[in-house]
Amino acid sequence: MDRIPILKMGEHLLVTIQVDMHDQIALNLQDDLTNQIAKYKAKAVLIDISALEIVDSFIGRMISNIAGLSRILDAQTVVVGMRPAVAITLVELGLTLDGVRTALNVEKGLDILRTALKR
């Protein structure tokens, strides 16, 4: 079964979505990520969706959920690399991902996480 790898980098967990997200993958990712955050006591999660070209309302909500649940597990979360078309689609679907931090690319996302962890 397809799984999305979750990479550990110090206190950060790195999730890069490189395949077409379908519903089962999203559900698996949700499980895996919560387990990993708990296991490594990760303080920050970075989700890179730069390869994601197509989103529907379900995937949009999954992204929002994943960000929400890692926040509950006390890990700062940032979603990076959203494509313009994906952003427009999510807005049109009414999913503005309020409360999820966003950045243009991985570099800027890591900057945000670093400053957030320093506080």
Binding site: M82, P84, A87, V91, T102, L104
Partner: peptide, 12 residues
């Protein structure tokens, strides 16, 4: 507001 939301999703 839609434009603002979309820009925010891109990290701006």
């Amino acid at each position: 507001l839609k434009t603002v939301a979309a820009a925010r999703l891109m990290g701006a």
